[in-house]
Write a protein that binds this DNA or RNA. Structure first.
Lengths: 229, 229
DNA sequence: CGCCGAATTGACACGGTTCAATTGAGGTGG
DNA sequence: CCACCTCAATTGAACCGTGTCAATTCGGCG
Protein backbone atom coordinates (compact mmCIF):
# COMPACT_ATOMS: atom_id res chain seq x y z
CA UNK A 1 0.00 0.00 0.00
CA UNK A 2 2.72 2.45 0.85
CA UNK A 3 4.32 1.74 -2.48
CA UNK A 4 1.17 2.49 -4.41
CA UNK A 5 0.67 5.70 -2.50
CA UNK A 6 4.22 6.72 -3.25
CA UNK A 7 3.74 6.06 -6.95
CA UNK A 8 0.52 7.97 -6.98
CA UNK A 9 2.22 10.98 -5.46
CA UNK A 10 5.37 10.94 -7.55
CA UNK A 11 4.10 10.51 -11.08
CA UNK A 12 2.24 13.82 -11.21
CA UNK A 13 5.23 15.72 -9.86
CA UNK A 14 7.53 13.99 -12.30
CA UNK A 15 5.37 15.21 -15.15
CA UNK A 16 5.30 18.74 -13.79
CA UNK A 17 9.06 18.79 -13.18
CA UNK A 18 9.80 17.35 -16.60
CA UNK A 19 7.79 20.12 -18.19
CA UNK A 20 9.40 22.90 -16.13
CA UNK A 21 12.83 21.44 -16.71
CA UNK A 22 12.12 21.55 -20.43
CA UNK A 23 11.60 25.27 -20.19
CA UNK A 24 14.66 25.94 -18.07
CA UNK A 25 17.06 23.51 -16.34
CA UNK A 26 16.19 23.23 -12.65
CA UNK A 27 18.65 22.64 -9.83
CA UNK A 28 18.13 20.16 -6.99
CA UNK A 29 17.05 23.05 -4.81
CA UNK A 30 14.48 24.15 -7.36
CA UNK A 31 13.04 20.65 -7.53
CA UNK A 32 12.86 20.48 -3.75
CA UNK A 33 11.10 23.85 -3.65
CA UNK A 34 8.50 22.69 -6.14
CA UNK A 35 7.87 19.54 -4.16
CA UNK A 36 7.61 21.36 -0.87
CA UNK A 37 5.36 24.22 -1.99
CA UNK A 38 2.97 22.28 -4.20
CA UNK A 39 0.16 20.34 -2.69
CA UNK A 40 -0.47 16.73 -3.72
CA UNK A 41 -2.51 16.09 -6.82
CA UNK A 42 -6.28 16.14 -6.49
CA UNK A 43 -8.81 14.67 -8.87
CA UNK A 44 -11.93 16.28 -10.29
CA UNK A 45 -14.65 15.01 -12.63
CA UNK A 46 -15.37 16.33 -16.10
CA UNK A 47 -17.38 19.52 -16.13
CA UNK A 48 -16.10 21.18 -12.99
CA UNK A 49 -14.68 24.66 -13.24
CA UNK A 50 -11.08 24.83 -12.07
CA UNK A 51 -10.18 27.59 -9.72
CA UNK A 52 -12.13 28.38 -6.63
CA UNK A 53 -9.68 28.78 -3.80
CA UNK A 54 -6.50 28.34 -5.85
CA UNK A 55 -4.99 30.98 -8.05
CA UNK A 56 -2.64 28.69 -9.94
CA UNK A 57 -2.94 25.02 -10.77
CA UNK A 58 -1.06 22.53 -12.87
CA UNK A 59 -2.91 19.88 -14.77
CA UNK A 60 -1.19 16.51 -14.55
CA UNK A 61 -3.82 14.23 -16.06
CA UNK A 62 -6.86 14.62 -18.31
CA UNK A 63 -8.01 17.46 -20.52
CA UNK A 64 -9.30 20.87 -19.60
CA UNK A 65 -9.90 23.98 -21.64
CA UNK A 66 -10.37 27.70 -21.34
CA UNK A 67 -13.48 29.09 -22.87
CA UNK A 68 -15.48 32.24 -22.98
CA UNK A 69 -19.24 32.53 -23.13
CA UNK A 70 -20.90 35.16 -25.29
CA UNK A 71 -24.04 37.06 -24.33
CA UNK A 72 -25.94 35.05 -26.96
CA UNK A 73 -24.93 31.87 -25.17
CA UNK A 74 -22.44 30.71 -27.74
CA UNK A 75 -19.16 29.38 -26.44
CA UNK A 76 -15.65 29.63 -27.81
CA UNK A 77 -12.84 27.42 -26.63
CA UNK A 78 -9.74 29.58 -26.33
CA UNK A 79 -7.32 26.74 -25.87
CA UNK A 80 -6.83 23.31 -24.43
CA UNK A 81 -5.03 22.61 -21.18
CA UNK A 82 -3.06 19.38 -21.34
CA UNK A 83 -1.04 17.43 -18.77
CA UNK A 84 1.88 19.56 -17.63
CA UNK A 85 0.18 22.84 -18.45
CA UNK A 86 -0.44 25.54 -15.93
CA UNK A 87 -3.88 26.87 -15.30
CA UNK A 88 -3.72 30.59 -14.73
CA UNK A 89 -6.86 31.71 -13.00
CA UNK A 90 -8.37 35.14 -13.21
CA UNK A 91 -8.69 36.29 -9.63
CA UNK A 92 -10.79 39.38 -10.26
CA UNK A 93 -14.44 38.84 -9.36
CA UNK A 94 -16.01 40.67 -12.26
CA UNK A 95 -16.69 39.45 -15.77
CA UNK A 96 -13.94 36.87 -15.94
CA UNK A 97 -11.92 36.82 -19.14
CA UNK A 98 -12.45 33.12 -19.39
CA UNK A 99 -13.38 30.00 -17.49
CA UNK A 100 -11.10 27.03 -17.04
CA UNK A 101 -13.12 23.86 -17.17
CA UNK A 102 -12.29 20.18 -17.05
CA UNK A 103 -13.52 18.38 -20.16
CA UNK A 104 -12.52 14.94 -18.87
CA UNK A 105 -11.73 13.70 -15.40
CA UNK A 106 -8.61 15.62 -14.44
CA UNK A 107 -5.90 15.60 -11.83
CA UNK A 108 -4.43 18.90 -10.69
CA UNK A 109 -1.63 20.13 -8.47
CA UNK A 110 -2.15 23.36 -6.56
CA UNK A 111 0.89 25.55 -7.18
CA UNK A 112 -0.48 28.75 -5.68
CA UNK A 113 2.11 28.87 -2.93
CA UNK A 114 4.90 28.24 -5.42
CA UNK A 115 3.99 31.08 -7.76
CA UNK A 116 3.50 33.40 -4.79
CA UNK A 117 7.04 32.59 -3.73
CA UNK A 118 8.32 33.12 -7.25
CA UNK A 119 6.53 36.45 -7.63
CA UNK A 120 7.96 37.68 -4.35
CA UNK A 121 11.44 36.85 -5.57
CA UNK A 122 11.95 34.13 -3.01
CA UNK A 123 12.64 31.41 -5.55
CA UNK A 124 15.63 30.92 -7.78
CA UNK A 125 15.93 32.49 -11.19
CA UNK A 126 15.52 29.14 -12.91
CA UNK A 127 11.97 28.67 -11.68
CA UNK A 128 11.13 32.24 -12.49
CA UNK A 129 12.40 31.77 -16.02
CA UNK A 130 10.65 28.45 -16.46
CA UNK A 131 7.30 29.94 -15.49
CA UNK A 132 7.86 32.95 -17.69
CA UNK A 133 8.69 30.65 -20.59
CA UNK A 134 5.54 28.65 -19.97
CA UNK A 135 3.49 31.83 -20.13
CA UNK A 136 5.19 32.87 -23.35
CA UNK A 137 4.42 29.49 -24.87
CA UNK A 138 0.80 29.87 -23.97
CA UNK A 139 0.69 33.32 -25.53
CA UNK A 140 2.28 31.92 -28.67
CA UNK A 141 -0.38 29.22 -28.81
CA UNK A 142 -3.07 31.86 -28.64
CA UNK A 143 -1.57 33.49 -31.70
CA UNK A 144 -1.51 30.11 -33.45
CA UNK A 145 -5.17 29.82 -32.63
CA UNK A 146 -5.93 33.23 -34.11
CA UNK A 147 -4.25 32.14 -37.33
CA UNK A 148 -6.16 28.87 -37.41
CA UNK A 149 -9.46 30.65 -36.96
CA UNK A 150 -8.80 33.58 -39.23
CA UNK A 151 -6.68 32.35 -42.10
CA UNK A 152 -7.26 28.62 -42.45
CA UNK A 153 -10.00 26.44 -43.86
CA UNK A 154 -11.68 23.92 -41.61
CA UNK A 155 -9.44 21.13 -42.90
CA UNK A 156 -6.25 23.14 -42.49
CA UNK A 157 -7.24 24.34 -39.04
CA UNK A 158 -8.05 20.85 -37.81
CA UNK A 159 -4.81 19.53 -39.22
CA UNK A 160 -2.90 22.31 -37.55
CA UNK A 161 -4.67 21.84 -34.23
CA UNK A 162 -4.06 18.10 -34.21
CA UNK A 163 -0.41 18.80 -34.95
CA UNK A 164 -0.22 21.14 -31.97
CA UNK A 165 -1.88 18.63 -29.69
CA UNK A 166 0.49 15.91 -30.81
CA UNK A 167 3.55 18.06 -30.29
CA UNK A 168 2.42 19.11 -26.85
CA UNK A 169 1.80 15.53 -25.76
CA UNK A 170 5.13 14.50 -27.26
CA UNK A 171 6.83 17.24 -25.26
CA UNK A 172 5.83 15.57 -22.01
CA UNK A 173 6.45 12.04 -23.24
CA UNK A 174 2.80 11.11 -23.68
CA UNK A 175 2.88 10.51 -27.44
CA UNK A 176 4.46 7.61 -29.26
CA UNK A 177 4.90 7.25 -33.00
CA UNK A 178 2.36 9.92 -33.72
CA UNK A 179 -0.26 8.53 -31.38
CA UNK A 180 -1.54 10.68 -28.56
CA UNK A 181 -4.52 10.76 -26.18
CA UNK A 182 -7.65 12.34 -27.62
CA UNK A 183 -10.30 12.09 -25.00
CA UNK A 184 -12.69 14.86 -25.98
CA UNK A 185 -15.75 14.66 -28.20
CA UNK A 186 -15.74 15.88 -31.79
CA UNK A 187 -18.12 18.62 -30.76
CA UNK A 188 -15.58 19.91 -28.27
CA UNK A 189 -12.87 19.90 -30.91
CA UNK A 190 -15.23 21.84 -33.14
CA UNK A 191 -15.91 24.43 -30.48
CA UNK A 192 -12.24 25.24 -30.47
CA UNK A 193 -12.14 25.74 -34.23
CA UNK A 194 -15.44 27.57 -34.47
CA UNK A 195 -17.00 24.67 -36.39
CA UNK A 196 -20.33 22.95 -35.97
CA UNK A 197 -20.26 19.42 -34.66
CA UNK A 198 -21.52 18.06 -37.95
CA UNK A 199 -18.83 19.73 -39.98
CA UNK A 200 -16.17 18.72 -37.49
CA UNK A 201 -17.18 15.15 -38.14
CA UNK A 202 -16.90 15.60 -41.89
CA UNK A 203 -13.51 17.23 -41.60
CA UNK A 204 -12.19 14.38 -39.48
CA UNK A 205 -13.69 11.87 -41.92
CA UNK A 206 -11.86 13.51 -44.79
CA UNK A 207 -8.56 13.51 -42.96
CA UNK A 208 -9.02 9.80 -42.32
CA UNK A 209 -10.00 9.12 -45.94
CA UNK A 210 -6.80 10.80 -47.02
CA UNK A 211 -4.82 8.59 -44.66
CA UNK A 212 -3.51 11.51 -42.65
CA UNK A 213 -5.29 10.59 -39.45
CA UNK A 214 -6.43 7.54 -37.57
CA UNK A 215 -8.85 7.68 -34.68
CA UNK A 216 -9.45 5.14 -31.96
CA UNK A 217 -11.21 5.12 -28.61
CA UNK A 218 -9.44 7.82 -26.66
CA UNK A 219 -6.54 8.37 -29.02
CA UNK A 220 -5.56 9.86 -32.36
CA UNK A 221 -2.67 9.03 -34.62
CA UNK A 222 -1.16 11.26 -37.27
CA UNK A 223 0.36 9.71 -40.35
CA UNK A 224 4.13 9.52 -40.63
CA UNK A 225 4.03 11.94 -43.55
CA UNK A 226 2.14 14.44 -41.43
CA UNK A 227 4.73 14.19 -38.68
CA UNK A 228 7.67 14.71 -41.00
CA UNK A 229 6.67 18.32 -41.59
CA UNK B 1 11.58 77.44 -33.12
CA UNK B 2 12.58 76.24 -29.70
CA UNK B 3 8.93 76.17 -28.73
CA UNK B 4 7.94 74.03 -31.69
CA UNK B 5 10.79 71.65 -31.01
CA UNK B 6 9.77 71.40 -27.39
CA UNK B 7 6.19 70.64 -28.35
CA UNK B 8 7.28 68.03 -30.82
CA UNK B 9 9.33 66.26 -28.20
CA UNK B 10 6.86 66.41 -25.35
CA UNK B 11 3.62 65.30 -26.94
CA UNK B 12 4.77 61.74 -27.67
CA UNK B 13 6.05 61.29 -24.13
CA UNK B 14 2.88 62.72 -22.69
CA UNK B 15 0.91 60.09 -24.57
CA UNK B 16 3.20 57.31 -23.40
CA UNK B 17 3.15 58.52 -19.80
CA UNK B 18 -0.61 58.94 -19.82
CA UNK B 19 -1.00 55.36 -20.95
CA UNK B 20 1.44 53.95 -18.38
CA UNK B 21 -0.09 56.04 -15.66
CA UNK B 22 -3.45 54.56 -16.56
CA UNK B 23 -2.09 51.11 -15.85
CA UNK B 24 -0.43 52.05 -12.59
CA UNK B 25 0.11 55.47 -10.97
CA UNK B 26 3.66 56.67 -11.59
CA UNK B 27 5.74 58.80 -9.25
CA UNK B 28 7.79 61.79 -10.30
CA UNK B 29 10.86 59.59 -10.24
CA UNK B 30 9.21 57.05 -12.51
CA UNK B 31 8.32 59.75 -15.00
CA UNK B 32 11.86 61.06 -14.93
CA UNK B 33 13.20 57.57 -15.51
CA UNK B 34 10.97 57.09 -18.52
CA UNK B 35 12.06 60.40 -19.98
CA UNK B 36 15.73 59.72 -19.39
CA UNK B 37 15.87 56.15 -20.69
CA UNK B 38 13.65 56.50 -23.75
CA UNK B 39 15.02 57.98 -26.91
CA UNK B 40 13.13 60.72 -28.72
CA UNK B 41 10.37 59.73 -31.09
CA UNK B 42 11.34 58.73 -34.62
CA UNK B 43 9.12 58.59 -37.66
CA UNK B 44 8.76 55.80 -40.20
CA UNK B 45 6.66 55.45 -43.36
CA UNK B 46 3.88 52.93 -43.88
CA UNK B 47 5.06 49.46 -44.76
CA UNK B 48 8.27 49.32 -42.78
CA UNK B 49 8.78 46.51 -40.33
CA UNK B 50 9.32 47.75 -36.81
CA UNK B 51 12.18 46.27 -34.89
CA UNK B 52 15.65 45.94 -36.24
CA UNK B 53 18.01 47.21 -33.58
CA UNK B 54 15.40 47.86 -30.89
CA UNK B 55 13.81 45.17 -28.79
CA UNK B 56 10.98 47.30 -27.45
CA UNK B 57 9.22 50.27 -28.95
CA UNK B 58 6.22 52.38 -28.13
CA UNK B 59 4.00 53.65 -30.86
CA UNK B 60 2.99 57.26 -30.30
CA UNK B 61 1.36 58.10 -33.64
CA UNK B 62 -0.15 56.17 -36.54
CA UNK B 63 -1.24 52.57 -36.88
CA UNK B 64 0.80 49.41 -36.95
CA UNK B 65 -0.17 45.78 -36.68
CA UNK B 66 1.24 42.39 -35.92
CA UNK B 67 0.70 39.74 -38.52
CA UNK B 68 1.82 36.30 -39.40
CA UNK B 69 2.39 34.95 -42.89
CA UNK B 70 1.36 31.41 -43.78
CA UNK B 71 3.32 29.12 -46.06
CA UNK B 72 0.59 29.57 -48.70
CA UNK B 73 1.23 33.30 -48.63
CA UNK B 74 -1.95 34.22 -46.83
CA UNK B 75 -1.63 36.74 -44.06
CA UNK B 76 -3.46 37.09 -40.76
CA UNK B 77 -3.42 40.25 -38.71
CA UNK B 78 -3.06 39.26 -35.07
CA UNK B 79 -3.83 42.66 -33.67
CA UNK B 80 -3.50 46.36 -34.19
CA UNK B 81 -0.93 48.54 -32.48
CA UNK B 82 -2.31 51.97 -31.66
CA UNK B 83 -0.78 55.12 -30.19
CA UNK B 84 0.39 54.37 -26.65
CA UNK B 85 0.83 50.65 -27.27
CA UNK B 86 4.08 48.85 -26.80
CA UNK B 87 5.62 46.87 -29.60
CA UNK B 88 7.19 43.74 -28.21
CA UNK B 89 9.68 42.40 -30.69
CA UNK B 90 10.72 38.81 -31.00
CA UNK B 91 14.47 38.84 -30.64
CA UNK B 92 15.13 35.25 -31.70
CA UNK B 93 16.37 35.04 -35.27
CA UNK B 94 14.44 32.00 -36.43
CA UNK B 95 10.88 31.74 -37.65
CA UNK B 96 9.52 34.80 -35.93
CA UNK B 97 6.15 34.38 -34.29
CA UNK B 98 4.96 37.51 -36.01
CA UNK B 99 6.03 40.67 -37.72
CA UNK B 100 5.24 44.15 -36.48
CA UNK B 101 4.58 46.40 -39.42
CA UNK B 102 3.52 50.01 -39.79
CA UNK B 103 0.29 50.31 -41.77
CA UNK B 104 0.38 54.11 -41.84
CA UNK B 105 3.18 56.55 -41.23
CA UNK B 106 4.09 56.01 -37.60
CA UNK B 107 6.08 57.62 -34.84
CA UNK B 108 7.84 55.41 -32.30
CA UNK B 109 9.80 55.80 -29.10
CA UNK B 110 12.59 53.34 -28.42
CA UNK B 111 12.11 52.02 -24.89
CA UNK B 112 14.65 49.20 -25.05
CA UNK B 113 16.85 50.72 -22.35
CA UNK B 114 13.84 51.28 -20.11
CA UNK B 115 12.58 47.71 -20.23
CA UNK B 116 16.11 46.42 -19.74
CA UNK B 117 16.30 48.48 -16.58
CA UNK B 118 12.91 47.24 -15.45
CA UNK B 119 13.77 43.60 -16.12
CA UNK B 120 16.96 43.93 -14.13
CA UNK B 121 14.97 45.28 -11.22
CA UNK B 122 16.56 48.71 -11.40
CA UNK B 123 13.26 50.54 -11.80
CA UNK B 124 10.51 51.12 -9.31
CA UNK B 125 7.70 48.70 -8.76
CA UNK B 126 5.21 51.05 -10.34
CA UNK B 127 6.83 50.87 -13.76
CA UNK B 128 7.21 47.15 -13.49
CA UNK B 129 3.55 46.79 -12.70
CA UNK B 130 2.49 49.17 -15.44
CA UNK B 131 4.39 47.19 -18.05
CA UNK B 132 3.07 43.91 -16.73
CA UNK B 133 -0.46 45.29 -16.88
CA UNK B 134 0.10 46.43 -20.47
CA UNK B 135 1.20 42.92 -21.40
CA UNK B 136 -1.84 41.43 -19.70
CA UNK B 137 -4.12 43.77 -21.61
CA UNK B 138 -2.54 42.72 -24.85
CA UNK B 139 -3.02 39.06 -23.97
CA UNK B 140 -6.66 39.77 -23.15
CA UNK B 141 -7.09 41.43 -26.53
CA UNK B 142 -5.74 38.33 -28.22
CA UNK B 143 -8.43 36.30 -26.51
CA UNK B 144 -11.03 38.82 -27.66
CA UNK B 145 -9.73 38.32 -31.14
CA UNK B 146 -10.04 34.55 -30.89
CA UNK B 147 -13.67 34.98 -29.90
CA UNK B 148 -14.34 37.38 -32.75
CA UNK B 149 -12.86 34.99 -35.27
CA UNK B 150 -14.30 31.80 -33.88
CA UNK B 151 -17.70 32.61 -32.49
CA UNK B 152 -18.99 35.70 -34.23
CA UNK B 153 -20.47 36.47 -37.63
CA UNK B 154 -18.75 39.00 -39.85
CA UNK B 155 -21.13 41.74 -38.70
CA UNK B 156 -20.73 40.93 -35.03
CA UNK B 157 -16.97 40.67 -35.34
CA UNK B 158 -16.64 43.98 -37.12
CA UNK B 159 -18.89 45.66 -34.59
CA UNK B 160 -16.84 44.20 -31.76
CA UNK B 161 -13.54 45.18 -33.34
CA UNK B 162 -14.68 48.75 -33.96
CA UNK B 163 -15.79 48.90 -30.34
CA UNK B 164 -12.37 47.79 -29.19
CA UNK B 165 -10.62 50.32 -31.39
CA UNK B 166 -12.84 53.10 -30.10
CA UNK B 167 -12.27 52.17 -26.50
CA UNK B 168 -8.52 52.00 -26.98
CA UNK B 169 -8.39 55.42 -28.60
CA UNK B 170 -10.65 56.81 -25.92
CA UNK B 171 -8.30 55.44 -23.26
CA UNK B 172 -5.53 57.71 -24.51
CA UNK B 173 -7.77 60.67 -25.15
CA UNK B 174 -7.83 60.36 -28.92
CA UNK B 175 -11.55 59.73 -29.31
CA UNK B 176 -14.36 62.22 -28.89
CA UNK B 177 -18.05 61.48 -28.88
CA UNK B 178 -17.56 58.13 -30.48
CA UNK B 179 -15.30 59.38 -33.22
CA UNK B 180 -11.82 57.97 -33.53
CA UNK B 181 -9.05 57.81 -36.14
CA UNK B 182 -9.44 55.05 -38.70
CA UNK B 183 -6.58 55.36 -41.09
CA UNK B 184 -6.35 51.86 -42.52
CA UNK B 185 -8.00 50.48 -45.64
CA UNK B 186 -11.04 48.25 -45.51
CA UNK B 187 -8.91 45.42 -46.81
CA UNK B 188 -6.61 45.74 -43.81
CA UNK B 189 -9.57 45.69 -41.47
CA UNK B 190 -10.73 42.55 -43.25
CA UNK B 191 -7.39 40.86 -42.87
CA UNK B 192 -7.77 41.17 -39.13
CA UNK B 193 -11.20 39.54 -39.18
CA UNK B 194 -10.37 36.88 -41.74
CA UNK B 195 -12.73 38.45 -44.25
CA UNK B 196 -12.27 39.22 -47.92
CA UNK B 197 -12.02 42.86 -48.86
CA UNK B 198 -15.29 42.70 -50.74
CA UNK B 199 -17.20 41.30 -47.84
CA UNK B 200 -15.57 43.74 -45.45
CA UNK B 201 -16.99 46.50 -47.59
CA UNK B 202 -20.47 44.96 -47.47
CA UNK B 203 -20.32 44.56 -43.72
CA UNK B 204 -19.32 48.17 -43.23
CA UNK B 205 -22.07 49.24 -45.63
CA UNK B 206 -24.65 47.38 -43.59
CA UNK B 207 -23.46 48.89 -40.33
CA UNK B 208 -23.82 52.31 -41.91
CA UNK B 209 -27.26 51.51 -43.32
CA UNK B 210 -28.35 50.54 -39.83
CA UNK B 211 -27.06 53.84 -38.50
CA UNK B 212 -24.57 52.21 -36.19
CA UNK B 213 -21.51 53.56 -37.93
CA UNK B 214 -20.39 56.59 -39.82
CA UNK B 215 -17.20 56.71 -41.87
CA UNK B 216 -15.23 59.68 -43.05
CA UNK B 217 -11.79 60.29 -44.46
CA UNK B 218 -9.48 58.96 -41.77
CA UNK B 219 -12.05 58.53 -39.03
CA UNK B 220 -14.96 56.39 -37.88
CA UNK B 221 -17.82 57.23 -35.57
CA UNK B 222 -19.94 54.80 -33.64
CA UNK B 223 -23.55 55.66 -32.93
CA UNK B 224 -24.52 56.78 -29.46
CA UNK B 225 -26.58 53.65 -29.01
CA UNK B 226 -23.59 51.52 -29.83
CA UNK B 227 -21.50 53.37 -27.26
CA UNK B 228 -24.04 52.97 -24.50
CA UNK B 229 -23.44 49.21 -24.35
C1' DC C 1 -32.11 -6.24 -23.64
C1' DG C 2 -32.74 -1.49 -23.77
C1' DC C 3 -31.07 3.10 -23.07
C1' DC C 4 -28.28 7.26 -24.09
C1' DG C 5 -24.73 10.10 -25.70
C1' DA C 6 -21.60 10.40 -29.54
C1' DA C 7 -20.70 9.63 -34.31
C1' DT C 8 -22.37 9.54 -38.96
C1' DT C 9 -24.93 10.72 -43.08
C1' DG C 10 -28.18 13.31 -46.27
C1' DA C 11 -30.63 17.43 -47.89
C1' DC C 12 -30.98 22.14 -47.96
C1' DA C 13 -30.19 27.16 -46.67
C1' DC C 14 -27.02 30.83 -45.93
C1' DG C 15 -22.80 33.42 -45.24
C1' DG C 16 -18.75 34.58 -47.34
C1' DT C 17 -15.47 34.20 -51.39
C1' DT C 18 -14.18 35.01 -55.92
C1' DC C 19 -14.08 37.18 -60.34
C1' DA C 20 -15.06 41.14 -62.80
C1' DA C 21 -16.48 45.68 -63.75
C1' DT C 22 -17.48 50.43 -62.22
C1' DT C 23 -17.12 54.45 -59.51
C1' DG C 24 -14.76 57.80 -56.69
C1' DA C 25 -10.96 60.59 -54.77
C1' DG C 26 -6.20 62.17 -54.22
C1' DG C 27 -1.79 63.15 -56.70
C1' DT C 28 1.17 64.29 -60.54
C1' DG C 29 2.73 66.03 -64.89
C1' DG C 30 1.77 68.72 -68.81
C1' DC D 1 -6.20 74.19 -64.70
C1' DC D 2 -7.05 70.04 -66.79
C1' DA D 3 -5.82 65.21 -68.20
C1' DC D 4 -4.36 61.29 -66.49
C1' DC D 5 -2.96 57.80 -63.25
C1' DT D 6 -3.48 54.93 -59.36
C1' DC D 7 -5.39 52.96 -55.43
C1' DA D 8 -9.44 52.37 -52.49
C1' DA D 9 -14.26 51.83 -52.35
C1' DT D 10 -18.36 49.94 -54.33
C1' DT D 11 -21.51 46.86 -56.73
C1' DG D 12 -23.20 42.59 -59.26
C1' DA D 13 -23.34 37.66 -60.07
C1' DA D 14 -21.93 32.93 -59.65
C1' DC D 15 -19.74 29.62 -56.78
C1' DC D 16 -18.52 27.00 -52.65
C1' DG D 17 -17.58 26.11 -47.76
C1' DT D 18 -20.07 25.62 -43.60
C1' DG D 19 -24.27 25.73 -40.74
C1' DT D 20 -28.64 23.78 -39.75
C1' DC D 21 -32.19 20.34 -39.36
C1' DA D 22 -33.29 15.72 -39.15
C1' DA D 23 -32.79 10.88 -39.25
C1' DT D 24 -29.89 6.83 -38.48
C1' DT D 25 -26.20 4.10 -36.67
C1' DC D 26 -22.84 2.93 -33.34
C1' DG D 27 -20.87 1.79 -28.80
C1' DG D 28 -20.73 1.57 -23.97
C1' DC D 29 -23.23 0.74 -19.84
C1' DG D 30 -27.01 -0.28 -16.62
Amino acid sequence: MSIRTSERDDAPFDLLLRRLNGYFPLSEADVALVRSLCRPARSAPAGVELGGDSRRLFLVAGWACRWRVLPNGRRQILGFILPGDSVGLTDGPEPPLHHSVAVTRVSVIDATALVDRINSGGAGEALSRAFAAADRCEAARHLDHVVRLGAMSAIEGMDHLLGELHRRFADVGLAEEGRFPLAVSQDTLGEALGLSGVHTNRVLAQLRREGRLELGPGWAQLSDARLAS
